[in-house]
Design a binder for these strands. Sequence first.
DNA 1: TGTCTCATGTAATCCGTTACATGATTGG
DNA 2: CCAATCATGTAACGGATTACATGAGACA
Lengths: 180, 180
Amino acid sequence: MARKSQTEMAVLGALGVAPMTGYALRRAIHEVLGHFWSESFGQIYPTLSRLEADGLVVRSGTQRSAPYSITEAGLHRLRELLGQPVQQVPPRNGLMLRLFFGRQLGPDRCQQLVREARQQAEQQLVQFEAIRAEMATEPETGADHQYWFITIAAGEHAARATIDWADETTAALARIGATP
Amino acid sequence: MARKSQTEMAVLGALGVAPMTGYALRRAIHEVLGHFWSESFGQIYPTLSRLEADGLVVRSGTQRSAPYSITEAGLHRLRELLGQPVQQVPPRNGLMLRLFFGRQLGPDRCQQLVREARQQAEQQLVQFEAIRAEMATEPETGADHQYWFITIAAGEHAARATIDWADETTAALARIGATP
DNA sequence: TGTCTCATGTAATCCGTTACATGATTGG
DNA sequence: CCAATCATGTAACGGATTACATGAGACA
């Protein structure tokens, strides 16, 4: 029951915003929650089946492409899940691991890794800007928007922090490279 | 071979700094790499056995508590592993997921989550300060230190970003709460 | 003597991705 | 009509955690 409910939370939460097929669900999670969440088909479809069996979601029709909608019971369960304590996943940052053992890798290879990280962060900032712009064109889900901005802001802060750190680190590595 | 080598990298990398038993290895990873990496006994012991069979590490003696050391072949393999592209894990940020669906949770519960995140970040900053202080007392592994500071700096930047974001978000949520 | 930490190992289990299979629908 | 996309599902696999079992050494 432990982490499985995390997928439930994502699925119910998304259906709480708008009815969707499993396929659309996965795309939405990828595109909208992509910078802090991910789900695969292998998780989504079995979860949807279970949720439907439990009466937490329903399909509008009998057709293949009938979208799922969240029920009252589903909304109740969603609020219950959201209220549970946040379980933090054990961290696994491959970049930091490499830099920690940077002596084995040498300053130049480390520089490259840091440059890549910086570029990635910059691209993220651009994407966040695009999301903000796109959201401004959809006035429908206004009540949700305020909360979505919060998660975007978190991404922006994190990206900017990465950029600042990368610049500092580039300078530090240059010093290491100069005096080996 | 894919992700398993990540554990190999952590184990070989740690043994590249100093010889250790599996037990000490796990504690070292927890305490020193804790903010960006984690390994459990269930991973460490089988990995050590494999590495020993492959001649990448050796035990100094035959006793139970004999520490493992990295071999020349092990060092070679370590550098090879460190050179591989960083594989990013699919993100799963439970806090962001909850905030994204914050409308269901309400502004007050969200405030609480943000407060907790802020406190956690503050504690991390304190811990980083402690690590810096501790490292200053061990002049032995000086060549590694420069790289370790880089990962600490990353942690500090991230923590400060979280604090800034939390303060902004607290204000934003207060506005939402005032005009629902 | 008994308890705490050190130390090693393994089996159960869970979560999740990947890959594959299958077919309907749409648009050029 | 054919390709691309939409849509659903499942089987295989892998990686990681958790929990448990076991025992040695230290020390009070």
